[in-house]
């Protein structure tokens, strides 16, 4: 697959997601249901339940980087711990100080 083809596919995917997002907003449904984007539930700053994650990229005491669709979500903090991990969801516990989205 050459660069041009990849570019076309990326544009098509982006277009699809945008389209699905639009449908979700018209139907007043959560985007995670229709568009398949990651869904995150944050309890205070000590627990995050993340659904729709594509795998752990980095895991240390201070940083957890997780693949979420086309982006990477970075959780910074102290004593971070992965409490449970399943096919597409995980629970992070610890003292979370920042959540960043990297593209």
């Amino acid at each position: 697959m050459n660069k041009a083809q990849r570019g076309i596919e990326k544009r098509q995917e982006k277009g699809n997601i945008r389209g699905l997002n639009k449908i979700a907003s018209v139907l007043q449904l959560p985007a995670a249901v229709i568009a398949g984007v990651a869904h995150m539930e944050v309890s205070g700053n000590h627990e995050v339940v993340l659904e729709g994650c594509g795998g752990i990229i980095e895991y240390t005491d201070d940083v957890v980087r997780v693949k979420t669709g086309k982006s990477i979500t970075k959780f910074s903090g102290k004593n971070l711990e992965i409490k449970c991990i399943q096919i597409d969801s995980l629970i992070i516990q610890g003292f979370i100080t920042a959540i960043e989205f990297q593209f």
Partner: peptide, 12 residues
Amino acid sequence: ARFGYTIWNVRR
């Protein structure tokens, strides 16, 4: 996780 083995208390 991908192969469906539930693991927990992952500590570094």
